[in-house]
Write a protein that binds this DNA or RNA. Structure first.
Lengths: 133, 133
DNA sequence: TTAAATGCAAAAAGTTTGCACACGC
DNA sequence: GCGTGTGCAAACTTTTTGCATTTAA
């Protein structure tokens, strides 16, 4: 992978964010430093870097893709009102690590189980405040 | 909710399917019986019926929405190659039912936890066969 | 030097919306 | 008859792609 200034700055801006930005959000941040960058470049770079395991693509339900500058496995919590995603500093749930735990009283419909995706849902502090008003 | 023939037939076709169709797939099935129906009507009806809890919207990552004629809670498994979704006849994982189990060594970042979404990933029988060839 | 990356614009894919008309209750 | 629902077309949002040009190694 060739290191271009675009790639470098995209990665830098992603790592400097503790939110998990959408492509668009990141595009506007990067654009402040590289005004001529195109959205397609941001898409292409995020895709490639997540394939290489440098960053992590967070495929949340429904809405847009988001990216996480931290490639290590960890859980996420998503706000059901605003869609924001935060890291969840909990340890991986052991009972799920072993797929045998989940197939005790049923077959897997002939699927070969390769993993699972666990996402937590909640209400973020900001949206809790809005509800109170 | 008013019962129109469109609504009735959409629901009937969804219930008669053991796959978990996308809106488009269902649209073409319904179209065989109601040739003049529009895609917008299918969208509007599926949305409304899932709001009312008559059916279930399956919000899988990345791709399109899919719908399930069975409103009861159950787990799904998604094929990582073709995106197909099947029901998984396993019982709900008890350890996840109690949110206290997941917050033992970390806080929840001030989120109010409301639930979780657990989806299994696998390779469906058809895609396993394709791989062998 | 040359293959990979970029910018731009257009296309694609999925979903939503405005509006006039139709129809269930 | 009223108000919800429908069909149609157009708009919208997010993501991808073709192509000529630029650039890192």
């Amino acid at each position: 992978m060739r290191m271009t200034s675009q790639r470098e700055i995209i990665l830098e801006e992603l790592k400097n964010t503790d939110t998990h930005p959408t492509v668009d959000e990141l595009y506007f941040k990067v654009k402040k430093r590289l005004p001529r960058i195109s959205l397609a470049t941001v898409y292409r770079n995020l895709e490639k870097m997540s394939e290489l395991g440098i960053i992590q693509k967070i495929e949340t339900v429904g809405s847009q893709m988001r990216f996480d500058g931290n490639p290590e496995f960890h859980y996420h919590i998503r706000c059901i009102y605003c869609g924001k995603i935060d890291d969840l500093p909990i340890r991986p749930i052991e009972s799920l690590k072993d797929s045998r735990n989940v197939s005790l009283d049923g077959d897997l419909k002939n699927y070969k189980l390769v993993g699972f995706k666990l996402e937590f849902l909640g209400v973020c502090p900001e949206c809790q405040n809005k509800q109170k008003q």
